[in-house]
């Protein structure tokens, strides 16, 4: 999932200074699953923000709503239908949803209620780890399923570097060295020789964000206009 983390409430409040009627929009997908921006968290914000606002002498009217997913407009539209439009929306979805909102909302300002961190997986309840950097040209076939781009601090493709110590990355003793994980995995699979003889050439980063904002267009799925 896309792992997000709620922004500090003070930051959120700071965005809202010029606005009166605010909608806090929660997302029932990734943001909910990492307990940062689902219905629960949005409602918590809806409780706390007005209190903090009042303390600061701000006149803030806050409403919370959550939809299944903010990154598909059909889910959001009904929430924003009706005459009682907010002046601003704080989106607790990942940046994708927030962007989509901005693309659609025109005169209504959109703010991020979370920081979008990474594509990751749950390692333990309440713990998520970056697993994928969305490079667009997956090399996991050669690294036994462990991503050297996302899980090595230097995105080394032929690692480990000299900074790996006791299986941990030089930048942080709590960070696993992604490449040691790859080596261990290769060993467990009896594929150390493969690893030894595999040289991964310099990556073509064009398929990643370095190649520009990306888009997927499936012509076979396109719905023709009636």
């Amino acid at each position: 999932m896309i792992v997000v983390r709620r922004k500090p409430i003070e930051s959120i409040l700071a965005f809202l200074a010029p606005y009166r009627k605010v909608l806090l929009l929660g997302c029932g997908s990734c943001a909910a699953v990492c307990f940062a921006g689902g219905e629960k968290e949005t409602e918590e914000m809806a409780c706390l923000l007005p209190v903090m606002a009042a303390d600061k002498g701000m006149d803030l009217e806050v409403r919370a709503a959550t939809c299944q997913r903010v990154c598909d407009w059909e889910f959001v539209e009904p929430v924003l239908a009706g005459d009682d439009k907010p002046d601003a929306v704080v989106s607790f979805s990942c940046g994708a949803g927030t962007n989509l909102l901005a693309d659609h909302l025109g005169a209504i300002r959109v703010f991020p209620g979370v920081d979008t961190l990474f594509i990751g997986a749950t390692t333990e309840h309440g713990q998520w780890q970056e697993m994928c950097s969305g490079c667009g040209d997956c090399v996991l076939d050669r690294t036994f399923g462990i991503c050297p781009i996302a899980r090595c601090s230097k995105s080394i493709l032929n690692g480990p570097c000299g900074g790996s110590k006791d299986g941990k990355c030089e930048i942080n003793p709590e960070t696993d060295c992604g490449w040691i994980k790859i080596v261990e995995r290769a060993q467990a699979l009896g594929k150390l020789d493969d690893l030894a003889s595999t040289y991964i050439a310099p990556k073509n980063w064009a398929s990643s964000h370095h190649g520009g904002p990306r888009r997927v267009k499936r012509e076979d799925l396109k719905i023709a206009k009636p």
């Binding site: 012509e219 076979d220 799925l221 396109k222 719905i223 023709a224």
Partner: peptide, 8 residues
């Protein structure tokens, strides 16, 4: 639609 999808 069916034609489109099946052709693809």
């Amino acid at each position: 639609r069916a034609k489109q999808v099946l052709t693809a």
